[in-house]
Amino acid sequence: MKGVLKMVCVLTSICVVSALGLGYVYTKAKPKIEEQAEEASRKALEQVLPGAVKFADKTLPSLNYVEGYGADGKLVGYAFDGEAKGYSSTIVVKVGLSPDNNILAIKILQQQETPGLGTKAVDVPVEETLWDKLRGRVVEGGATESPFQAQFRGKGPDDLKLVRGEWPPPHPDHIDAITGATITSRAVTDAVKDAVELFLKERKDEGAQGVH
């Protein structure tokens, strides 16, 4: 009986001590974590709406979006998320759309695709070598986004679709697939296309209902 009591006491006190410790660490870390998450989402917004500095959250029946305004107060565009099932994960994409319905930029927020194949959709080609870095040489003009994502810039909503190995693509709105990662490429394209179509449709319905 005494043995059991000791076991309970010791285990309980260890748990209490560690719970107190974790509680303390959590209160310290929480504001920092929230700050990081906010900064990440703001950064993504700034990337898909280049030049926007002020953001306003808006809602549609089945879609939340953000309106971005430039420093001069002019509307830069709308940003919203789309998602589709990729090869090995759900891909979440943020889309920036200009007021005249052309894509400003996209950013893949979430993916767990095959390293080296599907991840080419997000991998920024590395120009800078380790030797440059060691010698302190700065390489100018490196890309800041993956070539695949860059393709979406300026595309219209009319015939957004994926083609494979046809260059130049038969329609200016077509997206060229990544070699060896057709499924990922298609998922990203579908996510963008579906999100844009949903957004345009719901805004139109909204406009139809609104008082002019």
Partner: peptide, 16 residues
Amino acid sequence: VVIASFVTIVKLALNA
């Protein structure tokens, strides 16, 4: 319990 506590600390610190 001891190990899990330290892992959680590491996790929170990395996240932050």
